[in-house]
Design a protein around this nucleic acid. Sequence first.
DNA 1: ACAGTCCGTGGACGCGATCGACCTGAGCCT
DNA 2: AGGCTCAGGTCGATCGCGTCCACGGACTGT
Lengths: 152, 152
Amino acid sequence: MDAIDLSLVELLRGNARLSYAELARQVGLSAPAVHERVGKLESGGVIRAYRAEVEPETIGLGVTALIGIVEDSGADTDDVLEAFRVMPEIESCYFMAGVESFLLKARVGTIAELEQLIVRLNRTAGVASTRTSIALSTKWENRPQPVSPPPA
Amino acid sequence: MDAIDLSLVELLRGNARLSYAELARQVGLSAPAVHERVGKLESGGVIRAYRAEVEPETIGLGVTALIGIVEDSGADTDDVLEAFRVMPEIESCYFMAGVESFLLKARVGTIAELEQLIVRLNRTAGVASTRTSIALSTKWENRPQPVSPPPA
DNA sequence: ACAGTCCGTGGACGCGATCGACCTGAGCCT
DNA sequence: AGGCTCAGGTCGATCGCGTCCACGGACTGT
């Protein structure tokens, strides 16, 4: 993981569809060299996936909510997680420090669907309570930040 | 925006580096037809960007925090937003319903850097208070959900 | 000094991206 | 009804890219 790898990561975070030839020009190597480096970044777990970022409203997901979850005392955290995992509307799931064990980011089409989701969450074994905040608008999301060298 | 466009969006959300030829095979059209459709999805604002998803720890961003922001009464929300926008460690910014006007997702390398960020946030004109929760681990993030037709 | 390893380059070749020409069906006007 | 127009597709051709391979130079340890 040297400076060139970092540039490659940064370039691909900005535009995942850059061709190897173009990447090669930007970092000053040949295309095969870049191909090999990117392959290693992928198999080494640095690059997890390449995703198209979609305007959620345009695919019928106009409602974004952030939901804090308080677990029952004695709940099995793994089971709770598994229950969350099968709910497709939960786009992100963080395990948190604090009273609320989880913070979920969910996207649904309508407030009615959000209501149903909250009901399902409250019924989930191990969940003591939920606290939902609605996002009125997303100013930006997953903005890549300039990379810095990893801890030495 | 028909069923084929939805499939294309779904395929590209799963893997943004799919070739047009491969997309064409999957949806049963020719490559040029897919090329044109994807171009329209991009210029029509459905597809915002293509991004490589990176394991944050590997690029020296091991600390994730979610920060709620309460505005001063009479603060200029646009100015506050602008101040947030120039802080690169703020990856996502939602404008929320509730006492806290904003919810920020920030990633930094160390707790010390998080502390500095919070200080800067509290000093920002228009910010009355902040409330920070630390994510101990990210279970998943930005998982694409199966697309459904947009509201009719 | 030598051999092994790592990481790069250059060449070759087949596939994909992309352009232009043409085709077809739906909707509309006369 | 018949014909125009347009949107959106296919086909064919060309050119550049992805990818495999053989080769070469720098570094390292012995």
